[in-house]
Design a protein around this nucleic acid. Sequence first.
DNA 1: CATCGGACTTGTATTCACTCCA
DNA 2: TGGAGTGAATACAAGTCCGATG
Length: 627
Amino acid sequence: MAKRTVEDSSDDEPMIVKSESNQQAKPKAKKIKVEKKEKIKKEKEEKEDSPEKEDDDEEEERKWWLEEKEDNGIKWTTLQHQGPLFPPPYEPHGVKMLYDVINQGKPVELTPAAEEVASFYAALLGTDNGNNPVFQKNFFADFLKTIKQEKIPNCPIKEFSKCDFTPIFDYLNKVKEEKKQMSKEEKKKLKEEKEAIDEIYGWCTMDGRKEKVGNYRIEPPGLFRGRGEHPKTGCLKLRVQPEQVTINIGADAKIPDPPKGHSWGTVSHDNTVTWLAMWKENVNESTKYIFLAATSSLKGQSDMKKFEKARELKVRQLATCLYFIDKLALRAGNEKGEDEADTVGCCSLRYEHITLEPPNKVVFDFLGKDSIRYVNTVEVIDQVYKNLKIFKKEPKTVGDDLFDRINEELRKTPADGTIAEKVLAYNRANRQVAVLCNHQRAVPKSHGTQMSRLTDKILAVKYQRQEVKQQILELEPSLKKQRPELLEPESDLDDEFIKRHEIALEEKEKERLEKLLIKENEKRKENGEELLNSLPEQKKKQTIPTMDKLEKKLQTLTDRIQAQKMQMVDKDENKQTALGTSKINYIDPRISAAWCNKYNVPLDKIFNRSLREKFKWAMESDKDWEF
DNA sequence: CATCGGACTTGTATTCACTCCA
DNA sequence: TGGAGTGAATACAAGTCCGATG
């Protein structure tokens, strides 16, 4: 098998995309053009070929991504939903905080509302937030405010430093512990209750179709956990009342009932927005929304739009490149390595290589083939000038590729590699995007252990392979000459490991036999037979394996080693990069899906279940699909 | 012409739930 | 068998974009 290694190249950027779709803009009827017509035809044919019978009870799944849709700012025509779910009222626990213990302080009597605020803080004792002075200051100011509002008689609380929240802290921990210790039935019941609520609030009907709602819960009260140096971190986030909430719903829809004894603040019927409910939060006065879930068609559509925009940009870049190659006979320009001269061609032009002179002149200055300087000022057509302006727009700067959308990292996938090798290639491309976006993470603390565990796993397989090789040679000693590799000892398989491994194997075998014995005795007990002290020595009927079987086994083991090695390399290279964000937000899922099809890699090696759900619209992209 | 804020998308901390090993 | 460790799900804060406003 040809061995191809996948190597990271130095500085060519993979394609990334940042959302541009901000819905305020309401462009006039603009069509999203996708290769839809042929697709629809194809779909139909497939249906006829294989009449599907599964899911017949479910209504036909809508493939919105195959529909032509006008983007006129209207997001829906009919909308029905259940409104938001409010958090349950506070249930006081009666556990009292202490104040000024050193001076014979006593447990403090608080009203439920004040107790609730105290408990918010108590829960955070010892955490980063709890220890943050700004957080403490803000919390305490609001705590005092609450005490005042509650008109608690003779409340002694004046200083944060004299407060002792540990009784509440301990109590909350105890409750948490008890929750963990709940019986299976109790847990199951709780889960079912949650699912029942989800069934009601988790769905809405938009344009006659059932769509998943994202966060249908009104955010519960608590302490604002502003990150970094946020000046308001720790402030009390008040309980939201229905009177503060705006419901957005179809004009003909039934307005959901507000909680008993309450009414909605406002009811609107704005079909140019996607939110179902909205309220103002008291700490930063920012608006909070209830939106549809990421898997909904609305979100999917805007996601797709985002990537279509990026695709457009690529087409623009290709066209502009072609224009120069055609007009000025520029060389195409390949990727070059670190150790080669920094010369460029058209596609590898960088930011600093051209300057724009209004209204329509472009000045080239770069080193071309054989490091010959190319300086030229040319007049270009308006469209090209406009394009170049876009390609030089911020945040692009000196050193960046002008035509950054043209190179695809995924081309480096080894077509004849194993699945594991291909996945590694994919992850490397994904990683470049993540590195580019600076999606870093701390190296997981168990990384070392995990790596050595993987090493051991590989060694264990190598050990097995060694044995199989020996068996082959015993069966057919003549192979020693023909296939000397069978004689070669496995790499890294040292005596120390073999010893350790054999002991482990022996122990495992012993355990297995013990279990067998127990089982056997149980059976005998039932049948009233006499019990055994040890299993009868198995008749060593070990049939001598055939050459065919041994060869097959050798191959499986070799494959397994290969796959595990790949996994290890992947894991190690990935230890300080978080792939999630780029996979969720920046990489066009159609690129990934098409890649999977092209290289015969199962989709689930790349996308987990929820991502497959979110990107349903992209999952069918066939192998010829091009960004 | 700067700034504000509504409506979204993106990023990250926390919680949940599952797995795997001692 | 339970408990540590993990990746997925969730919650919500933060960032972005762009039209409105004055």
